[in-house]
């Protein structure tokens, strides 16, 4: 297939995955805000989406003070925010439109219909309808997109490049989320292990945002501890959004695409590291350090993928 088409499919999927991630983050933020007074104390839960998306500065410039409503408006429907859900959806749709002859009509129409429904929506429209319903609906649309992708597309390069976009974006998001979370947590808690009430709720937030609360309970049968969250989301391959699971998936998809040796080596190195390392070791190096390093590797892999397959001169 055309390199440019592969590039569009890859970014279509990354944009769609990023939308789901943002929605989950906002949804968890709203729940946490309602749940507990304790959760609200200290630093603001609503800073997280801004930090993870890297748009805090823009937000402060355009909106001033941080509040739930303002962050939601900014993250959901502000077209000036380059990573708002609406903007990402518009990008995803343009990517899809550029390659619509590769997509099944199911996949194309799914994205197009989602866009048509959201295109004119302002945040006050969303509020009128119920913000929570809107968020649930968006997550459903995301699942529908992925379901149609895997259920209707021919098992060929088109699907593979889309899948690659999904798992690369997922890995990137989990790493960013953990980075923000742990750097905050380590600032605030001197003693690891023993969690304060506030930290408990913050940790719930992260598990929910990564859709891993249930997995945590099933895996550890114990109370919520930061170390265990780190272990689960970095090393456990059976948790869909863990770094290990994402890297395994990237390796699988890439292998089918016959890449150059250098990309594959990069991925294998990362995979090997995640397979063999223990959480205590990561602790010693510093989680922060490890996560920054991981993100660098992912950027490198992403660049190499684009270089290998999608180079448009």
């Amino acid at each position: 297939m055309l390199g440019r088409a592969a590039d569009n499919l890859y970014w279509m999927a990354r944009n769609m995955e990023r939308i789901e991630n943002m929605i989950r983050l906002i949804r968890t933020g709203r729940t946490a805000n309602m749940l507990s007074e304790a959760g609200k104390q200290g630093d603001n839960i609503w800073e997280m989406p801004l930090e993870i998306s890297g748009q805090k500065e823009l937000f402060l410039k355009d909106y001033g003070e941080i509040s739930g409503g303002r962050v939601c408006a900014f993250m959901l429907s502000d077209m000036n925010n380059p990573v708002s859900v609406k903007k990402l959806l518009s990008n995803a749709r343009e990517n899809a439109r550029a390659t619509r002859h590769f997509l099944t009509s199911d996949v194309w129409e799914c994205i197009n219909r989602t866009w048509l429904a959201v295109k004119e929506l302002t945040y006050s429209d969303i509020k009128k309808q119920s913000v929570d319903d809107h968020l649930d609906w968006m997550v459903d649309r995301s699942y529908m997109f992925k379901g149609m992708l895997s259920g209707s597309m021919r098992r060929g390069e088109g699907l593979q490049f889309s899948n690659l976009g999904l798992c690369v974006e997922r890995a990137d998001h989990t790493a960013r989320l953990l980075m923000v979370h742990f750097s905050n947590a380590e600032k605030n808690t001197t003693q690891m292990g023993g969690l304060q009430v506030r930290d408990y709720y913050r940790s719930m937030v992260i598990l929910n945002a990564l859709n891993a609360y249930k997995a945590y309970r099933e895996t550890f049968h114990s109370s919520i501890e930061l170390d265990k969250i780190a272990e689960l989301m970095i090393l456990h391959k059976e948790v869909p959004r863990s770094l290990r699971a994402c890297v395994d998936e990237i390796a699988d998809v890439l292998r089918a695409l016959n890449p150059t040796a250098s990309v594959m080596k990069e991925v294998y190195d990362l995979q090997y590291r995640l397979e063999t390392v223990q959480i205590a070791q990561l602790r010693r190096v510093g989680l922060d350090h490890f996560l920054v390093d991981f993100s660098k590797h992912m950027d490198e892999i992403s660049l190499n993928i684009q270089h290998d397959f999608m180079m448009v001169q």
Binding site: L2, E157, F161
Partner: peptide, 18 residues
């Protein structure tokens, strides 16, 4: 294809694929 996807080499036209 768009123009940028094609190039000419030694009198033949090629497209840039994966």
């Amino acid at each position: 294809v768009e123009g940028q996807d094609l190039f000419v080499d030694e009198g033949y036209v090629y497209m840039r694929t994966t």
